[in-house]
Amino acid sequence: MADTLVPLSPLHGWDQKFSELPESVSLTEEPFVTMVDLWVDLAGPGGSAASNILGVDLPTAPSTCIEGDAATAIWLGPDEFLITTRSQAPEEVEVQLRSAVTPHGGAAIDVSAQRTTLRLRGTHARDVLAKGCSIDLHPKVLGPGAAVQTMLALAGVVLIPLDSTGTDYRILVRSSFARYLAEWLIDAAEEFGIVPV
């Protein structure tokens, strides 16, 4: 009988560390999100074909994302998008998108193993991010619909605000930097659990 390989997320076993954070800061991993890099001319027929497959329009403005019922499309650069979903397997999304855009000069490739996703929530979530991020995090500037590529501490991330109050963020980070960033976020959050004497 052959052994079965079981995939482990980059932050497998970190639940205990995350549970020790103060009440005003919550950190969890959202592992195994399907992620596909999509290159397509947004103005051409390939853009429409990709949107039809995904059930969501592709964003037209830099540093934005559009969330649909089943998928989210994140603008990474001119004619480059990151598609994320939890409802379909990576291979399925890759094949569907590749079939739709290849005839129009586009490409799609599964990059799901490249990144993991952290969810940072709580009344001090924005304060934690501000310790290591140079962009303006105020919800009037960075609110729902934004998706910025930036540095958080020493890790390159895609930062997606999920509410208009600065209390809920999704952070996409390369798997090789996931442990470093998780440690940094835990350390940055510690002060919010200190009770003044």
Score class of each variant (00 low, 15 high):
E94F: 02
D37C: 11
W14P: 00
P22W: 11
T4F: 15
P31S: 07
D136H: 06
S175A: 15
K140F: 14
W184T: 06
W184Q: 01
A71E: 07
G13P: 11
Q16D: 15
V157A: 11
V33F: 12
V158I: 14
V128T: 00
V40D: 08
F81E: 04
D187W: 12
R170E: 15
V128Q: 05
A89F: 10
L185I: 03
V158F: 12
G122M: 03
I74M: 02
M35K: 11
A43T: 06
R119T: 10
A178W: 01
W184G: 01
R126N: 13
M1R: 09
V95Y: 12
T150A: 08
A182G: 06
D37H: 12
A61M: 12
P90K: 02
Y180Q: 04
T165R: 07
V6E: 13
D110M: 01
G143E: 05
P7C: 05
L21F: 14
D57V: 00
A49D: 08
A147M: 08
L154T: 08
D187V: 05
W75I: 04
L82P: 08
R121A: 15
L76E: 09
S24V: 14
S26I: 07
P59G: 08
V25A: 10
I109E: 15
L185H: 09
C133S: 09
A71N: 05
I74D: 10
L42M: 07
D3Q: 11
G47K: 04
D110F: 03
P90Q: 03
A113G: 14
P103H: 12
D69G: 08
T102L: 11
Q88I: 01
D136I: 03
P90R: 02
E80P: 00
V197A: 11
I171T: 10
A43G: 11
E183C: 01
D163S: 09
I83Y: 07
A125Q: 01
V173G: 09
L76V: 01
L8Q: 13
A125K: 02
A189F: 01
R174V: 13
A178F: 11
P62N: 09
G46E: 10
T34C: 05
L42Y: 14
P10K: 01
T64M: 01
T85D: 06
E183G: 04
K131C: 09
T28R: 04
I53P: 04
D41N: 03
T28P: 03
S19F: 13
R98E: 12
V6G: 00
T84N: 06
E23A: 05
P10T: 11
M1W: 04
T60R: 07
A61C: 08
V36E: 10
D79W: 09
Q88Y: 10
A130Y: 13
L82W: 07
D168L: 05
T28M: 08
Y180M: 08
G193Y: 07
T72L: 12
L120W: 03
G44H: 03
A146P: 02
L11C: 04
E20L: 08
G44Y: 06
V40I: 03
P59R: 06
